[in-house]
């Protein structure tokens, strides 16, 4: 082959490669790109309502509060007597749904640490002050002074609304809206889904194909 034939061959080869590239690009452009499902936030995880209800929310929402009407069952004249078993655990009859886990073992299984033995529909602090059911947080504060001080300063417990009180109101929760007073540990929760990296597959039940088209 002489020089010019080689040149022509090289050029033709380049032309073929270019043409092939053009074809590849065009066919690739026509292929439909797969649409990815979108990860949706489960509204369960957005719920800002407290895990428990205090007495006021129960009454306001007209829930059944008969449980708090002690003298439906108890007699005003008769003093409640507590019964303990051999190891010192409280024996429950009617209130057997209550579990006691407040402080060290058996420290709090004496009902009248908090409840007023003489007026069952009231609380009574260890220093003899009586409080209504709506004042439960003050009752807690009578023992848990530091935490109560934090709570009053909004440093303990949940708040919502406005950090700037000049612009709006702030809502502060009562102790019992997070803590069961008989079993004070905050309940366990199922964790929301973990992080999704770029190349993660999205669980089918949380996905939608509701792509938003802007064109």
């Amino acid at each position: 082959m002489n020089d010019e034939t080689k040149k022509a061959a090289a050029l033709t080869g380049a032309a073929v490669v270019f043409a092939a590239l053009a074809v590849v690009f065009l066919t690739a452009g026509m292929r439909e790109r797969p649409q990815h499902p979108i990860f949706l936030v489960d509204p369960v995880h957005l719920d800002t309502s407290p895990v428990r209800m205090n007495y006021d929310t129960l009454t306001d929402a007209r829930y059944d509060t008969s449980d708090y009407d002690c003298y439906l069952c108890h007699s005003r004249a008769e003093r409640v007597e507590l019964q303990f078993d051999d190891v010192g655990d409280l024996i429950l009859k009617e209130h057997d749904y209550i579990t006691f886990a407040h402080g060290p073992a058996r420290a709090a299984n004496y009902c009248f640490n908090c409840h007023n033995r003489d007026r069952l529909d009231q609380f009574r602090t260890q220093y003899g002050r009586t409080l209504s059911f709506s004042q439960s947080s003050e009752l807690c504060g009578s023992c848990h002074g530091v935490t109560y001080r934090d709570w009053v300063a909004d440093a303990h417990g949940r708040t919502s609304g406005y950090w700037n009180l000049a612009m709006g109101d702030r809502k502060r929760l009562d102790c019992t809206q997070c803590h069961d007073p008989h079993d004070t540990r905050f309940p366990s929760l199922a964790p929301a889904p973990g992080p999704h990296s770029m190349r993660d597959r999205i669980p089918a039940q949380l996905a939608t194909d509701g792509r938003n088209d802007d064109e």
Partner: peptide, 18 residues
């Protein structure tokens, strides 16, 4: 606008303060 951040309001244990 004077309000708390969203992460604070949703925190069920009140661990977040702002």
């Amino acid at each position: 606008a004077g309000r708390y951040p969203a992460c604070l309001e949703v925190c069920p244990v009140g661990a977040r303060k702002f």
